[in-house]
Simulated assay, not measured.
Amino acid sequence: MAAKNSLAAAIRTVRKARGLSQEAFSDVSSRTYLSSLERDLKSPTLHKLEELCTVMDVHPLTLLTLAYAGDASNSAEQLLASVRKELELLTKTSDQ
């Protein structure tokens, strides 16, 4: 399952939507590192992704949904419905 957009585009989209400059992340990241993430030259660790999302005031799953579904709300709804079903199945399986 490949991302329709990329994580890089999702980070840039959310950062700009929140009205944040790359310098606003200075407590968790350098401007150079954030720029390399947004240009898809590097990939963040899960821990770093969580730190970036804290600055952007968005849940990491929101960012990942944007990366996988793009900006089309119907694609996001389909993706979230699929994830919901998978979680339900996994929960039922682990309860047995």
Rank of each mutant, 00 (worst) to 15 (best):
K42M: 07
L64R: 05
V55C: 01
F25Y: 05
L20D: 00
R12D: 10
K16Q: 04
T13L: 01
L63W: 14
T45S: 14
R15W: 00
E50C: 07
A69D: 07
T54N: 15
S29E: 08
Q22W: 03
L52A: 09
L64V: 14
Y33I: 05
T54R: 12
P44F: 08
L41A: 12
H47T: 14
S29I: 03
D27Y: 09
G70N: 11
T45Q: 12
L41R: 15
V58Y: 10
S43V: 13
L41D: 07
E77N: 10
T32M: 04
L46K: 06
V58N: 11
S36V: 06
V58F: 09
E23F: 10
T65D: 15
L61G: 12
S36K: 15
L66S: 07
A76I: 00
N74A: 15
P60K: 04
L37F: 14
E38F: 01
V14P: 00
V55D: 00
H59L: 03
T32G: 02
T65E: 15
K48D: 15
H47V: 13
A72Q: 15
E51R: 07
G70V: 09
H47F: 11
H59P: 11
E50I: 05
V58M: 13
V58E: 15
S30P: 02
D40S: 13
R18P: 02
S43C: 12
E77Y: 15
S26I: 10
L46R: 09
S21T: 02
Q22G: 04
T32S: 11
T62N: 13
V14F: 01
T13G: 01
A24K: 08
S30A: 03
T54K: 07
L64H: 13
T32L: 02
S29N: 04
R39L: 07
L49S: 12
E51G: 13
L52H: 13
C53K: 08
F25V: 06
F25Q: 02
L49R: 10
S35D: 05
S35W: 08
S26P: 03
L52G: 08
E23A: 11
S29K: 03
Q22T: 02
S30I: 03
M56H: 11
S36A: 14
S43T: 09
K48A: 11
T45M: 14
E77H: 13
R18S: 01
S30H: 03
L52Q: 11
P60D: 12
R18H: 01
A24L: 05
L52K: 09
S30C: 02
T54I: 13
R39H: 04
L37D: 12
G70Q: 11
L49W: 11
A17K: 06
P60F: 06
S35Y: 06
E51P: 14
C53P: 14
G19V: 02
C53T: 09
